[in-house]
Design a binder for these strands. Structure first.
Length: 568
RNA sequence: CGGGGCGUAGCGCAGUCCGGUAGCGCGCCAGCUUUGGGAGCUGAAAGUCGUGGGUUCAAAUCCCACCGCCCCGACCA
């Protein structure tokens, strides 16, 4: 391809609305263009790279035995009512009506549709196991789209769904997808970290996320310095901290703390460090008030709380509810004398002298011992894990990192197969329910994650496998006819070999061309110039390396091909 | 939805406080020179100053409302 025939308009400056490196580079390198918040057009260069990621995904899905299908993005509301997720996802979905006033949604995911497919198409255990996948545009009404393709309203996703005769069999399907994911991301040149994850609104009981470690990542994760434990912060657990039990002969003493509501305010006022306070939060669990206690210097992890209480729906209590159950305004809640269930973090199980809200306006209690002065319904690990906490597996230190979630594999179980009656007849003629798994890869997000993980001050550094072009052919001076002639020859030969070549045939100064080549990040740069031709050579430079090699004209094509085959 | 910021030519920005002929750099177009790391000169094109209303002799600038975009938070598969 000739530069002058395709459409590549590079930008010297990044638009003001791009924040992170990958986003800026995608715009500057002319890969994508914004239409509106969370909506992007793929320009020719960006689309070429996207197609390469898709091809890798397809090849590995096919290799893993998954079957490609294509389901409608436009779906009737009814199947979402049937699964009950119309209510669960609600505002997260784009909803539209057709001219008959029938309600439709633009699919944010396809569990409902695929399970309906399986229910109709699969009748016998002989047809199982089956894994289906598709690469398709998803729509989600994101509260806050951001960072270009990282969180968009419309994006490309590879979703796969497995159906098995049993839980044991489902494990094998899960593992096959897990292994395929490892290969896919490796082939994309991505270093990923697999973490245990929360299943959220998807349901199911077990899942792993594939994370690309990056400061710009939206997810926090914890990894152990000593063992392989790693988990999304939404799920990460910690070993109960060891500490000596405390006691005091003193009894709870009311202290007037006018207007001191937050931990910081109370801590400063009482001259106690935050860990000497106990934070009392009032929640509604499935609509019923409960109190949750965590050390004053820690934050509650709502996901863990919801799971500990058997998957309840949590909601922070409103001011009226708090006043009703504690007898005091917000900011002065405490566990002493509460008549509602009280759940406390494990760290609080070991008695310690602390200050708490008094359930009286402008008043706190100090010298409180939880085990003596209050009653706790149950202790669980409830706080958000942070750097330095102890690993739940081996007790060593946990480290905090940030990551971009590019893939997620779930063991779903029978949640959807039950509601859609996706089952089969077993060998004995008995009706059984299929066990499902579901597996997603954010394809457009993966593309951007590659750039986020592989760039430098000059631009993108594409891995060969996903680079829009493998070779960038540069003629520094297009006035030099011989250079152009040799380059044209080169272009023809390489393209005939199936190599993706971008020939920079613009009448630009050399500096412009080199800067652009670096910005675009094409892995192999071949320069044909009057200078190199004088020695009968061309110059070959890899984007990943600083040095260039001078290769005799006659060997150049073979040299490039050997690089592409991974031999150089 | 809460907090903050921004909206002026394709991109980056100045001008807004203090009302008075809409500017700069890059890019784009034409010509000449130049040709190994974002060239020089000359000339040209390009702007409903986010939208609507108001105040005023006069509004990019002051007032009101709305829209869009970005960041933080809440939320999230």
């Amino acid at each position: 391809m000739r530069w002058t025939q395709t459409l590549i308009s590079t930008l010297r400056d990044a638009p003001q609305d791009a924040e992170i490196p990958s986003h800026k580079l995608m715009i500057r390198a002319s890969l994508i263009m914004k239409l509106g918040g969370g909506l992007y057009t793929f320009l020719p260069l960006g689309l070429k790279a996207l197609r390469k990621v898709e091809r890798i995904v397809r090849e590995e899905m096919d290799r893993a035995g998954a079957l490609e299908v294509l389901m409608p993005a436009l779906q009737p509301r009814e199947i979402w009512d049937q699964s009950g997720r119309y209510e669960v996802l609600r505002d997260g979905m784009f909803k539209i009506r057709d001219r008959q006033d029938r309600e439709m949604v633009l699919g944010p995911t396809h569990e409902e549709v695929i399970t309906d497919l399986a229910a109709r198409q699969i009748n016998s255990y002989r047809q199982l196991p089956k894994t289906f996948y598709q690469i398709q545009t998803k729509f989600r009404d994101e509260i806050r789209p951001r960072f270009g393709l990282m969180r968009a309203k419309e994006f490309s996703m590879k979703d796969a769904y497995s159906f098995d005769v049993s839980w044991e069999a489902a494990d094998a399907s899960y593992q096959a997808m897990y292994d395929a994911y490892v290969r896919i991301f490796a082939r994309c040149g991505l270093a990923t970290k697999v973490v245990e994850a929360d299943t959220g609104a998807m349901g199911g009981n077990f899942s792993h996320e594939f994370m690309v470690l990056a400061d710009a990542g939206e997810d926090g994760l914890a990894e152990c310095e000593g063992c392989t434990y790693a988990a999304n912060l939404e799920r990460a657990e910690r070993a109960t901290p060891a500490r000596d039990p405390e006691t005091t002969p003193q009894h709870p003493e009311a202290v007037v703390t006018p207007g001191k509501k937050t931990i910081e305010e109370v801590s400063a006022f009482l001259k106690l460090t935050p860990d000497r306070l106990i934070k009392t939060l009032i929640y509604l669990a499935n609509g019923k008030p409960i109190a949750v206690l965590v050390p004053g210097d820690r934050d509650l992890n709502e996901h863990k709380l919801a799971r500990a209480l058997g998957g309840v729906t949590l909601q922070m209590a409103d001011d009226q509810t708090i006043a009703k159950v504690t007898g005091a305004p917000v900011g002065f809640s405490g566990p002493v004398g509460l008549k509602i269930p009280v759940y406390a973090d494990l760290d609080l199980k070991t008695p310690r002298v602390a200050a708490v809200g008094a359930n009286v306006a402008d008043t706190h209690l100090r010298n409180v011992l939880l085990n003596r002065d209050a009653s706790v319904t149950e202790f669980y690990d409830l706080v958000i894990v942070r750097e330095g906490d102890a690993c739940p597996r081996c007790g060593k230190r946990l480290r905090e990192k940030r990551g971009i979630e590019v893939g997620h594999v779930f063991k779903l179980g029978t949640k959807y197969s039950k509601t859609f009656d996706a089952g089969y007849l077993d060998a004995d003629g008995n009706r059984q329910i299929s066990v499902m798994g579901c597996y997603g890869i954010g394809v457009t997000r993966t593309l951007q994650a590659i750039i986020e993980q592989s760039h430098d001050a000059n631009g993108i550094i594409w891995p060969l496998s996903v680079a829009p072009y493998q070779v960038c052919l540069v003629v520094p001076n297009t006035q030099h006819a011989e250079s152009v002639r040799v380059a044209e020859d080169f272009l023809k030969t390489l393209e005939a070999q199936g190599v993706d070549v971008l020939f920079d045939d613009r009448d630009e100064r050399p500096g412009v061309k080199f800067k652009d080549a670096d910005l675009l990040g094409i892995p192999i740069r071949v320069v044909v110039s009057e200078r190199s031709l004088a020695d009968g050579k061309v110059e070959i430079k890899l984007r990943t390396e600083a040095d260039k090699k001078m290769i005799p004209l006659a060997d150049a094509v073979a040299f490039v091909e050997s690089i592409i085959r991974g031999e150089k």
